[in-house]
Design a protein around this nucleic acid. Structure first.
Length: 359
DNA sequence: TAGGCCATCTGGTCCT
DNA sequence: AGGACCAGATGGCCTA
């Protein structure tokens, strides 16, 4: 079953926030929560944290001489640095207000970040509203997507090829890899099987209990979830003399845990033009569950041959490679995946493996 | 129940 | 002084 992520506590907060409750929070509710241990019960309260109680104590302490007395009665050296200002009620109030405002800004900032991430999800080839990619998976997929597209432009490799999807799936979790593979509707790759066997522990890696997995996914029974394995696409890239950012696979890439930082990516192609200009989906489009944007690119690249140079003679306006121009249009090729995918994929399931779909 | 993912709060740091 | 950004801590929700 696919992972669904919604209905988190943040939804409530956002709802409340949208009603203006949080923005108008004067701190009293928060203090109330803290006293009830609802939200801050376990939070570490540092000496600088200014809960009302702390501040009261601080105010009292500061009224005394600052000379500290050690456990044995000896006088500790005088505290250096700027003398702490007295915590008057007014200062407390200002500090509290400032903290509340800072919290609101931080929430807003994070919401903006999440909005940007959501925009990124929408231009991913496997955008799904029902199976939302996690933040880290979105970033990884975006990285791979850019890299794979760039590679396609340079080498002329079709986005329908296995190599393309291999790059797309690099470092992704198994569910995400399955989703990508399902969206791209690829069949099995014996070569990949052999490669996986070589590198990742043999046939046993094919999935526990006879569970089939897509050859491009990450069969990794016994590994923590999500199994961020390696597709070892770099092996294939090595085989064809490809030099890329994945050329130095980590020796433990088949091990558990999040794969190490891959280092700065330098796509093989420098693209000076608009990238990912696809507009926000229409309400109708938003109803779709699975949308394969990559279909555009696959059809486009497979039916057109363009020079590697992206600056090759588009008169007027920004020089944009047709690959990316295509993404600007709401093409009819933008297939509503869920409108046909279950039945369509049913025939592919035997090939793809355990691509599971939401019902 | 453990682990993953997430939103939120918070204090620190840097900058204006 | 205040805002932006960051990372740590915490607790909630969900799934295997």
């Amino acid at each position: 079953m696919m992972t669904k992520q919604f209905g988190k506590s943040g939804d409530v907060s956002e709802l409340v926030s949208s009603l203006g409750w949080l923005e108008e929070d004067d701190g009293s509710s928060q203090d109330g929560e803290e006293s009830q241990g609802l939200t801050l019960g376990g939070r570490i309260r540092s000496c600088t944290e200014l809960g009302s109680e702390d501040m009261e104590e601080e105010e009292e302490e500061e009224g005394e001489e600052e000379q500290e007395i050690g456990p044995n009665g000896e006088q500790a050296p005088k505290r250096r640095g700027p003398k702490k200002k007295k915590m008057t009620k007014a200062r407390q109030e200002r500090f509290r207000t400032r903290r509340v405002k800072a919290n609101a800004r931080e929430r807003s900032r994070m919401h903006g970040l999440n909005d940007a991430l959501e925009s990124l999800r929408r231009v991913m080839p496997c955008f799904s509203k029902t199976q939302k990619l996690s933040k880290i998976e979105t970033l990884r997929l975006a990285r791979n997507y850019i890299w794979a597209l760039s590679d396609s432009l340079e080498t002329g490799q079709s986005p329908e090829s296995h190599g393309f999807v291999e790059m797309m799936c690099k470092g992704l979790s198994q569910p995400t890899s399955n989703l990508v593979a399902g969206c791209l509707q690829l069949g099995p790759s014996p070569m990949m099987h052999s490669k996986m066997d070589d590198k990742c522990g043999g046939p046993a890696m094919g999935g526990a209990g006879g569970q089939a997995t897509h050859p491009l996914s990450y069969p990794s029974p016994g590994l923590p979830s999500p199994p961020y394995g390696s597709l070892e696409a770099s092996h294939l890239l090595h085989m064809k003399g490809f030099k890329g950012p994945y050329d130095n696979p980590s020796p433990n890439e088949c091990s558990s845990g999040t794969p190490p930082y891959d280092g700065p990516l330098t796509p093989p192609l420098s693209i000076s033009g608009n990238f990912a200009l696809k507009q926000e989906p229409s309400p109708r489009e938003s109803e779709r569950n699975y949308t394969s944007h990559l279909g555009h690119h696959a059809h486009y690249l497979s039916s057109h041959h363009y020079p590697t140079s992206v600056n090759g003679g588009l008169p007027g306006g920004p020089q944009v490679h047709p690959l990316f121009q295509a993404s600007r249009y709401e093409l009819p090729l933008d297939v509503a995946f869920d409108s046909f995918a279950p039945a369509h994929l049913a025939s592919q399931m035997g090939n793809i493996g355990n691509v599971t779909m939401n019902s």
